[in-house]
Design a protein around this nucleic acid. Structure first.
Lengths: 244, 244
DNA sequence: CGTTTAATTGAAAGCAGTCAAACTATGTGG
DNA sequence: CCACATAGTTTGACTGCTTTCAATTAAACG
């Protein structure tokens, strides 16, 4: 079925707030265009003003920041159905880059129009706040991950998070999935070099915690992987999130 | 002057949204108690439901998470005047711990009352969203810091951030300040051991980038320190943040 | 197919961690 | 005011995890 790409955004909002029929209608009436983008295409650049809001209709994306000497840290991953940077909705200039990971279909909405709705309609504003809170919670866990866990757990943790998030939207998940990240990107997400990520993946395979051919990963022993990763899905706040 | 401790919260909100006189009055009429807490006292524990909102009237606090094997990552620092965990206002259970750093005066507000105001009054909800966005931006920078920068820069970066944030509220700042963190806590904030933090501080002193006696730090060459830290205050969003 | 990009492996170097001890504050009670 | 206990800082020696460098193999792509 070819549906309005904004349906995805509305569905997400409804997970986090009780929208009225009016709220829903207002959101669906926002002007929007669907943009098809190749892998690795820039969506937003650090330091630039942002005038659009982007929702992933299909494909994956990520946000990242760079140090003065050119090292890159991925600060978030976005799966189909998610907005790419709620955080820039209300900040004048972007403090990070956003890029597609795979080929992607991106719904583009004028930022000011959505912003106006968020300020007028409490439920919409609240949904955006909730999404931001969950993103911040994930960010804290990533900080814990890169700051305190050994390399093997860091890599395993990211694989687990991906599985749990994909599971939550009925896309593969802990039964295995197509990993959209290269080993270098994986490394940039957890603060390791691609070489070392490769070694950690090899070690996880050797221990029977993951199986992998090409980009497809499977989890023959989810419990053991979860343990090795020190993973608990609480921080994803997958349920009970309406907060009102 | 002995003022209502909620004044601090209102002042903060006003930096981020245009409150009406009514909004202001509603906030100041919230029931509140002032609690005096010793250093290192727990305010919130991971996994527990949170029923209060906490604002630092005086003193410092921090939030942290722990790995399964007991390693601690500090995920945020809070200076006088700041709320301690806007993030838990709308999430059912806390996914992190919050603790005082120094002796502190904490204004305690019933969470449900503030939550109700946030949902009823657009400007208040918006202020909370903005504060959350800025906190998330800081979290991204911390992730970049621990994930990609060498130890010396990590430590320097935290010192710079502290200076900039204190500056913004007219408290010492880049002229020097009383560092409220032990070296161990400093390490837990940037993903290093206390031993290595000690060595990095020594090195910064040796290079004339900082001066330190007891807990008092000074910055004889702010520009050079800033450069060594790869620090830019953009991510703090200290101005132009009303977003409307 | 040839070209480019990503994955894999080995060897060596280095940054940060660990362990252990000494030293310095800070605070408490006698 | 001193003696002691406790917490935090400083230093050294050593270990080890992760990076770096470099080369090879495999996969993806036009």
């Amino acid at each position: 079925m070819s549906m309005n790409p904004l349906e995805l955004m509305v569905r997400k909002f409804e997970m986090y707030a009780n929208l009225t029929a009016d709220d829903r209608k207002a959101l669906l009436n926002l002007p929007t265009t669907l943009r098809s983008m190749p892998p690795s295409a820039y969506i937003v650049r650090e330091g630039e003003p942002v005038s659009q809001h982007y929702v992933l209709a299909a494909g994956y994306a990520f946000r990242h920041k760079m140090t003065g000497d050119g090292k890159r840290q991925i600060v978030s991953m976005h799966i189909p159905g998610e907005a790419i940077a709620c955080s820039t909705l209300f900040l004048a200039i972007s403090d990070h880059n956003a890029q597609t990971l795979t080929h992607a279909e991106v719904a583009v909405v004028p930022r000011d129009a959505l912003r106006a709705l968020a300020l007028e309609r409490a439920a919409i504003g609240h949904a955006i706040l909730m999404i931001t809170l969950v993103e911040a919670s994930i960010l804290s866990e990533w900080l814990l991950n890169t700051g305190q866990r050994p390399a093997i757990a860091r890599v395993a943790h990211l694989l687990c998070e991906f599985a749990a998030r994909l599971d939550a939207v009925g896309q593969g998940g802990r039964n295995g999935y197509e990993l959209p990240l290269s080993q270098e990107q994986l490394g940039d997400a957890v603060g390791l070099t691609s070489v070392h990520v490769n070694r950690m993946l090899k070690s996880l395979k050797g221990d029977g915690l993951i199986e992998q051919n090409a980009r497809k990963v499977r989890f023959p022993d989810w419990k053991a992987l979860r343990k090795a990763a020190d993973f608990s899905e609480l921080y994803l706040h997958l349920e009970q999130v309406k907060g009102g």
